[in-house]
């Protein structure tokens, strides 16, 4: 059994893509909330007050857009672990598990599939943001933002996969996922700048990997950052590699009844 079976990884990825593009209502549903956040929260706060320390020419919507992209990536990545739970529920996981394909390859196929769908949704939000007047600094920035997006998505898909490996029912999965996603989102500098925060809160955001993801996105897209892009990418790459290892480890213990 090859540990990394590229045909199998591609096969599993292909299936995830087919399912994703066929479930358009789910796609629209999953984009509705971030859109509300971006448009109404953005405009609301934009009009109400100005954050200090904001560089000239950057309003709240511009500040918020990378944060919302981070949020979309986070939510959709983690919930992509659902596909494992669905497969288990509908028996398809047995079909996958009985094939002569290593668990590692199956986990990687699922990760790649979840990453791609999350990435597409993140990109859609970016497009919509540009449509309502969000300005990107340049092509190079766009490129590094894609790298950030891939790293964020992959890491959190792996987290979702870990949850799906140890939780068997959908309700439990949803509960655990929302238990994790909201603090990660709120404490990530997606909604507010870090500079003015009380010290204890600042440290909380510093141990949150999404903070570096959003910071990297923000630097790439509007040229404003709390850390340096190098630090952001370094933390993201380490976190991502760690999560891939952890998720394949957990996925190996998955049993099908």
């Amino acid at each position: 059994m090859k540990l990394i079976d590229f045909t199998a990884i591609y096969t599993i990825w292909l299936r995830e893509m087919k399912r994703f593009f066929r479930a358009r209502s789910r796609l629209i549903g999953s984009l509705a909330m971030p859109l509300f956040f971006l448009v109404f929260l953005g405009m609301g706060f934009n009009a109400a007050f100005k954050f200090s320390d904001m560089p000239p020419g950057i309003d709240y919507i511009a500040f918020l857009a990378p944060g919302i992209i981070g949020m979309v990536l986070l939510f959709n990545s983690i919930t992509s672990g659902m596909s494992v739970i669905w497969d288990r529920q509908f028996g398809f996981l047995k079909e996958i598990m009985v094939t002569p394909v290593s668990r590692v390859s199956i986990a990687l196929g699922k990760t790649l599939g979840g990453m791609t769908t999350a990435l597409l949704q993140g990109f859609l939000i970016l497009l919509i943001a540009v449509g309502i007047g969000f300005k990107i600094t340049g092509v190079l920035g766009l490129l590094s933002s894609v790298i950030c997006m891939i790293l964020i998505a992959t890491s959190f898909v792996c987290l979702g996969l870990i949850f799906a490996s140890i939780i068997n029912d959908m309700q439990g999965f949803h509960l655990i996922v929302s238990l994790f996603t909201f603090p990660i989102f709120i404490l990530s500098s997606a909604l507010f700048p870090l500079e003015q925060l009380p010290l204890w809160l600042k440290y909380l955001t510093y141990i949150n990997p999404l903070t570096y993801g959003v910071d990297g996105l923000r630097y790439s897209l509007i040229g404003m950052a709390h850390f340096s892009l190098t630090l952001d990418l370094f933390v993201l790459v380490c976190f991502c590699a760690f999560m891939i290892c952890l998720s394949t480890y957990f996925f190996r213990s998955v049993e099908v009844n």
Binding site: R15, F90, G91, F92, K94, E95
Partner: peptide, 8 residues
């Protein structure tokens, strides 16, 4: 038990 992907 069924083990096909009904969405395919």
């Amino acid at each position: 038990d069924p083990s096909v992907d009904t969405e395919l």
